[in-house]
Design a binder for these strands. Structure first.
Lengths: 157, 157
DNA sequence: CCAAGAAAGTTGACGGTTCAATGATTCTGC
DNA sequence: GCAGAATCATTGAACCGTCAACTTTCTTGG
């Protein structure tokens, strides 16, 4: 049966903070996307390049890449296909698991990342890191780790 | 000429916090979208309903609504058109400015919001508010207000 | 007043994401 | 060792957001 108990609304201050969060995230995203634009990248593609750049041999299984870049496998397939046609990555069969596909960053992808990264970092600083109290930024980290590490919430329905 | 000075990279801790932020935001969004799904709403539509519900006569000019729901005017036009066809909102000409269009929440839209809101709040609590240290949550609010209220960053290019 | 420009809103095409379905391969329990 | 379940990756269609172009109306400087 549906939960008929009175919902626990947010108090005024919580609501203010929550809405600031929603607006802030939007602004941060817009700023980062704008900064990547001159490089012909969006944030999702940038993340893919970063993950590949840090992996052994600059290569990852598609599903590991999907996980670390926080994308669905389907989305990743499409995005990587596009990036492949731009010459940023290549794909090949995985030798140890014939279901698998390994994506590898090309030299061209690497050099694009190297060129884009300084601007990206600068944009992160401009919109967030250099703009806020370092204590609050550390609190942000703690808070987000609590969000990530917590159990899958059930949302009883 | 391009800035050739060494970029100010994030230190290890900043990077850890920043990446936690990216992951956390993704997780929060996924959780909220999931919670709204049974109501046939996504977060963008929910925001539109919230903004209308708090406005006088549950009505807003399209461009004010676009601003407060953090959407482009074009996106809002499309989304409101869809919501109109679902019977959640109506549109009519603005009497004082003949360029304008006023969106109004219908009774059906209102009742859907009333039904969805408790679940939505619960999902916000589950994924964030009830999961983190209240001090850190307050820090989140401060931090995001600094992001929002700050000047348009130039991102010198 | 009026011409030029700005603002409001829409439109349609394009591109990207989601979703469900599919084929192929590997894992699991018996 | 095999049947059934789970995993990996892809596909294509439907759906949604973005972008540039456009119309209409309002504002502003001279």
């Amino acid at each position: 049966m549906p939960d008929t108990s009175e919902p626990r609304w947010l108090d005024a201050e919580q609501q203010r903070d929550w809405r600031a969060f929603l607006s802030g995230v939007t602004r941060i995203n817009e700023h980062l996307e704008l900064a990547l634009r001159p490089f012909g990248l969006d944030l999702a593609e940038y993340e893919i390049l970063v993950q590949l750049s840090e992996a052994e041999r600059r290569s990852l299984r598609m599903s590991d890449l999907a996980h670390s870049a926080r994308q669905s496998r389907s989305r990743l397939t499409h995005t990587v296909a596009r990036m492949e046609s731009k010459g940023l990555v290549t794909r090949r069969a995985c030798p140890s698991d014939r279901r698998g596909v390994i994506a590898t960053m090309t030299e061209h992808g690497w050099s694009l990342l190297v060129r884009a990264a300084p601007t990206h970092v600068q944009s992160v600083r401009e919109i967030l890191v250099d703009r806020v109290d370092p204590e609050d930024f550390a609190a942000l980290g703690r808070l987000m780790r609590a969000v990530i590490d917590g159990p899958e919430p059930a949302l009883v329905g």
